[in-house]
Every structure is written in structure tokens, then in C-alpha cells.
Design a protein around this nucleic acid. Structure first.
Lengths: 138, 138
DNA sequence: AAGATATTTGCAATAATGTTGCAAGTTTTA
DNA sequence: TAAAACTTGCAACATTATTGCAAATATCTT
């Protein structure tokens, strides 16, 4: 029995609702990243599209999940495994997109290396996405 | 007088059309990245939305421009300054998004550092996006 | 340079994606 | 358990993206 998701919701001061429990569960059970469309599919559209959008937004605001940059224009979301505070994410790990299975994986143990920027540029955040073949598809 | 854009189109075996000339010119005159919406705005909607989509796609296919990953779901495009071949991009430079002016800048001289991936992962490409304050806004 | 061929464009229709206001429903608080 | 606070779903709307096809434009051939 797994009450992780209840804990997470409570800890963030969120009301416990069916939608939030279910969507959070999806993230916990799935170590890849999920797009809005994935969530609709996995929940069999049990929740309104709008609810899914709002739930994802709430989770991002609370620092429960983070967004992953992609070149196609889909927003991907993944759990923040390390301590993220509301409004300030610390998801400075590398993301890997597998060209074979299409999964997006958070490489939590690979931190984004810092780079030397030209004069005058002040960085606040860095994201890195690597594509290739993942360990399952190799 | 600048025939750069004609050269580029010819070199890639593309027909010379008003739309392609104009859109390519926009990229050449603008060192930041452009979104589809920017192009519509700058061209005063002289070209059909569909034409713009298709032109951008053609340029990506030919390796003239490349897409930049973002977390909001807008696709950004920028010139490939280094030799890109059709279908295989070599845009392994860092992209910088300024939180102040909103511009996205290709830092052509900053290459994406390679990272050590976990066992079994084989990289083919890497992208890096840094956000912060650019040299114009500092 | 003109006609034949190939390519590109714009329109219309359609699909997919994202947003907002508001009333009804649910969760939390006291 | 009732009141207050918050969340949901619906409807409407806005934006963004895709496809087929006929008309227009560009390129090729002679």
C-alpha cells in the first residue's frame, strides 16, 4: 500500500481530490516523462481536459513536477525527485529522449554541467536534453 | 547588396520564391531565434500561415535552420551557422533565453559539453538551453 | 523566349491544443 | 455537520497546426 501521493499532496497544502491522486500516481508509477496527451490516455479521459491542464499547472507551481524542453512543441512533465520548492525548481539534471521507444527519461544522477558564457551573460538556469538510444532499447 | 539568401536557397536545390526569400532574409537580419508567430508579424501576414509552416519545415529539412527546445510550448527556429547537412543537424551550441527581453540567442561559440551517461545510454545529439540575463539587458 | 513540366502557394476545411468564466460539486475547516 | 474554501466540468472561445486540391509560379527544355 502506497500513500506516497497523499503525503505529497498534503505536504504541499493541496486538497485531496480524485484527479490529483490519480495523476500524481501516474507520475510515481512511470519514470518517464508524460505529456498532457499521455495523461488523458492513461486516465481514459476520466477527467476533463481542463482539469488535467489545471492539475499539471498546480503541480508545476508547487514544485511537484517540472517541465522538460523539447524541440517538437509538446510540453513534457516529470516528477521532481529532488527537493524543489514552490516557484523555484532545482531540476538541473539531464533529460534523455530515446529515439527508439520515444520515452523521455530524467537522468537524476547526471547534473547539467556549467558552461562558460560570453561576457555579459548571467545564467540563472540551465537545461540539457540528450537524444539517442536508451538502456532499454540498446 | 546581399544575395546571401539566393545563394543559400540555390545551394539547397530550392526554388526561389518570394516567401522563401523573405523568410530567409528575416533569419539573416536577426540573430535571435524566431517563432512562427514572429515571422507572421514581421511579414505582415503577406504569406499564408500554411506557407510559413511549410517553408519553415522545408528549411529544417534542408538544414538551413534548426529548432530550439523550449519549456513553454513554442517552437523556435534559428539559422544553422555552421555546416548542417540535410537531415543531420550539427547545432551543438548552447542557446540562451533572456528573461528580460525574451530573446533567444544562439551562442555559436559555446559548444554543448558532453556528459557521462549511465551505462547503456548511447547519445546521438545534445541540446542545452540556458536562461538568465543577456549581455544587452545586463 | 515560350511552352511543358514540376513545384509552390493559398484557400477551405478540419484537427489538435490551450484558456476563461461560471455554476455545481467536493473537500476542508471550525 | 454546516459554512467556507476550493476544485471540477461544461460551454464557449482562441490559438496553433495539418491536409487536399486547384490555381499560380518557378524551372527546365528546346
Amino acid at each position: 500500500m502506497n500513500d506516497n501521493n497523499l503525503d505529497i499532496l498534503k505536504k504541499n497544502g493541496l486538497s485531496i481530490t480524485e484527479g490529483r491522486k490519480k495523476i500524481l500516481e501516474l507520475f510515481l508509477d512511470n519514470d518517464g516523462a508524460l505529456a498532457h496527451a499521455d495523461i488523458e490516455r492513461y486516465t481514459d479521459a476520466a477527467f476533463d481536459r481542463v482539469t488535467v491542464y489545471r492539475t499539471l499547472q498546480t503541480f508545476v507551481d508547487k514544485g511537484i513536477i517540472h517541465q522538460i524542453p523539447t524541440t517538437d512543441n509538446s510540453i513534457l512533465y516529470a516528477l521532481c525527485k529532488h527537493k524543489c520548492e514552490a516557484g523555484q525548481h532545482h531540476d538541473e539534471h539531464v533529460h534523455f529522449i530515446c529515439n527508439h521507444c520515444g520515452k523521455t527519461i530524467c537522468l537524476d544522477d547526471v547534473t547539467v554541467p556549467s558552461v562558460k558564457l560570453p561576457k555579459g551573460f548571467k545564467p540563472t538556469q540551465a537545461a540539457m536534453v540528450v537524444t539517442g538510444i536508451c538502456s532499454d532499447c540498446k
